[in-house]
Structure formats: structure tokens, C-alpha cells
Write a protein that binds this DNA or RNA. Structure first.
Lengths: 206, 206
DNA sequence: GAATGGTTTAACCATATGGTTAACAAAAGT
DNA sequence: ACTTTTGTTAACCATATGGTTAAACCATTC
């Protein structure tokens, strides 16, 4: 029974994840989720009470996983740049495994920004420092050169995340076949982002 | 009458744009679109026949505008790097004016990648060269150093587009107040992307 | 004023949608 | 073996949804 219990709930979560990622909260259909989970629709309500709660559960899980990749920013045993490098490795590996994750988060933000902001404060309260704070710390400690932390923060996140979001755009527009994100492409992407970080954050350039 | 005719159609398109950008094809509601356009719902069908055709009209318009920003890649009166710089100016100005545009395109791709691919071929057939071809041309002409065109193409698009997509993420996660994209922020973003292009594409680095 | 073409409206339609309910089945507890 | 608890199902419900229809309205032309 316990095994069965977990299987039904997990089936629902998996199907819901796919549906919400693709169609969003308002576009996803409960009957479709049930069909894809191989269960009766009433079970969605038995386990998760309503559509919104199911969505919240799935979305909160996605956000938590996303923030986990940033924990390394707090790792004071590493120098600033190492932390950033490690984050780059983390986030690219993570997004390669869950390519839809950024899309999911970004899509839902555009629908309900205020709710998102609230969720982030709740989930993030114990998730360590952010990249801007880290960059500011690096400048104070003279570990990195003077830069605009906001712009560099945006640049780094952009370089890491956008390729996964825009992979189909690249395919269609640039007729590029090299954007399927296997290990080799991930390594290239990581390397290029780290080169950028070196370019921006190496002290001996000044 | 002609004036009146244009106004109703434009009202519909504007309201539809907002709704589809926010909720997608399946999440947006025709009654909401009509309400926000200040018209009777039956008019949506009178002018655009059905939801999908209305969506196609809006989405095709968005794609066309997006591709217009890339026309500069074909401008053979400019050296390679100038074309890329001009594209950076174009796309950042464009996305600053229509911040939801990338979101719209990316969101819909994730729902229907095949249809998107088809549309791109249709719309793009006379829209000039792409960035990868341009980078390859630059390397052949020895205007730029040897680079991986796919990776650099991804980097440039990422740096230009992601900040507009992820602005609310940055606000919530990084508690950054400097991500509202007025002229000053745009100039900073343009400058940082061009610095990256210089870093990657300047010959005397080799 | 009547005819014409275009625009707009309210009512209507068939189906879809998220959610509820009662009955039944299976598992756990005594 | 019986009772209680948990899980599942099919049917049902009230409302929402995209779309249709016929009539009314509007503006222009003759």
C-alpha cells in the first residue's frame, strides 16, 4: 500500500510537471494530466485537492531545485571565482538534465510576478548569498577587479541559462545542429562561460 | 467607417497580444480578450474566425518583428563586427520596447516546436543570413579569429535576450533594483555585450 | 427613403472544464 | 473475521469555453 501510495502520487507529479511546463497553470488540463498519469481524474483532487495546489507543489519543487544550484555561492572555503565556476558547472549540468526548468520558471513568472516574488522570499530565506553580493564581496576583498555587479550577474546567468531556453530557436533560425546539449556541448558552454568570467573577473587585467 | 474598422481590429490584436503573451494559446480566454478590447466576443470570430487564426496572426507578427532585427547581418557594406554591434543595438532596443517578445516566442516554442520550425522557414526565407554564417564568413576572410561559431552565436544571443526574459527573476533572487531597463541600463547592457564581442572577435588577441 | 454592405450585438449551442459524490476495492488494524 | 482506513472509480454537477446565428444597427450610395 505504501508503495502503491507513492506510485500514484509520483505519477501525478510527473504528469503535472510535464503539463504545467508545457501549457502553464491555465493552459494545462486536469483530464490530460490524469490521462498521462494513467489514473482517474478524481484522484488529482484526492491527492492535491485542486489544480492550483497541484501547480504550487510542482512549481515550488522546481524553484527549490533551481536554488539548490546557487548554494555554492555561500561556500566560503572557496575563493570567489571558484564559487562562480562551480555554480556554472552546477547550473549547466542541472539545466541539461532538466532543460525545461528555466522555461517553466520564466513562463510562470510572466503570468504572476507578485506571487513568484513571494514564493522566492519563502523558499530562499535559507539559501545563502546571491551572485551580486558575492561580486561585491570579491571587489571589497580585492579578489576581483571593479565591475558593475548587476551587469556581470546578468551576463553570467544569461550565458548559462538562455541556451537551454532557446535551443529550438537556434535550431530554426540559425539552422544549427550543434545545440542538442550532450556532454560535449555542455563542456563547450561551460568553458565559454568560464572564459567570460575570467575575462571579467581576473585582476591582472587592470 | 474605414477608420472604425481599423480601430476594432487593432483593439483585438492588441488585447490578443497581451493575452497570448501572458497565458499562451491554450491559457488565454477569448472572452477576456474581448473584454480587454472593449468589444463583443463574437467580433473576434467575425474578424479572425477562430482562436488559432487570431493567435497565428499575432505570433507571425511577433516573429516578423523579431527577424527584422537580424536584417543587419546581411548588410555587406559593414564589416562583420560592425554588423554584430548593430544587431546588438537593434535587438536590445527592440526588446526594451517589447520586453515580452522573447518570452512570447520562447513560450510558444515549448508548446509546439514543429509548427514553430515551419513558421520560421516561411517567414525567414527572405530575411538574410544568420549569425553563424556571418561568423564563418568572418573567419574565412580573416576578419575575426578562429572561434566556435555555434558557441559564440549562443553567447551573443544569450547576453542580449535573457535579461529581458529574466528581469523578474533577477529582481526576486538577486534583490537587484538595477534591472528595470531604461536607457541607462540598456546602454550598460549593450556595452557589456559589445565588450564580449570584442573579447571574442578581435584579431589582435591571437 | 430605400437599398446595400459592413459592423455589432445578445442569445444560443455543444462541448469542455475543474471539481464533487457515493459506491466499491484494497489494505491495515484489532 | 470484522472494522476502519486509504485508495480508486464512474457518474455527475455547475460553470466556462470557443464558436454560431439571426437580428439590429450604422454608414454610404442612389
Amino acid at each position: 500500500m505504501q508503495l502503491k501510495d507513492i506510485n500514484t502520487e509520483e505519477k501525478i507529479i510527473e504528469a503535472a510537471k510535464n503539463a504545467f511546463m508545457k501549457y502553464g497553470l491555465y493552459g494545462a488540463r486536469m483530464q490530460d494530466i490524469a490521462d498521462n498519469a494513467g489514473i482517474n481524474k478524481a484522484l488529482l483532487h484526492y491527492y492535491f485537492r485542486n489544480k492550483e495546489k497541484l501547480f504550487d507543489y510542482v512549481f515550488d519543487g522546481a524553484l527549490s531545485k533551481y536554488f539548490e544550484q546557487m548554494l555554492v555561492f555561500s561556500d566560503t572555503s572557496l575563493p570567489i571565482k571558484e564559487r562562480i565556476f562551480k555554480y556554472i558547472d552546477n547550473i549547466i549540468d542541472f539545466l541539461s538534465e532538466y532543460p525545461q526548468m528555466s522555461m517553466f520558471i520564466i513562463k510562470e513568472i510572466s503570468v504572476n510576478e507578485e506571487l513568484f516574488y513571494e514564493k522566492v522570499q519563502n523558499i530562499k530565506k535559507d539559501k545563502g548569498v546571491h551572485l551580486i553580493a558575492l561580486l561585491n564581496e570579491g571587489m571589497e576583498k580585492n579578489e576581483i577587479p571593479m565591475i558593475d555587479p548587476t551587469v556581470v550577474m546578468m551576463n553570467i546567468h544569461s550565458l548559462c541559462a538562455y541556451p537551454f531556453l532557446a535551443s529550438p530557436i537556434f535550431k530554426a533560425i540559425e539552422k544549427s545542429s550543434g545545440v542538442s546539449f550532450h556532454d560535449e556541448e555542455n563542456q563547450k558552454l561551460k568553458k565559454s562561460v568560464k572564459e567570460f568570467v575570467d575575462f571579467k573577473l581576473t585582476l591582472n587585467k587592470n
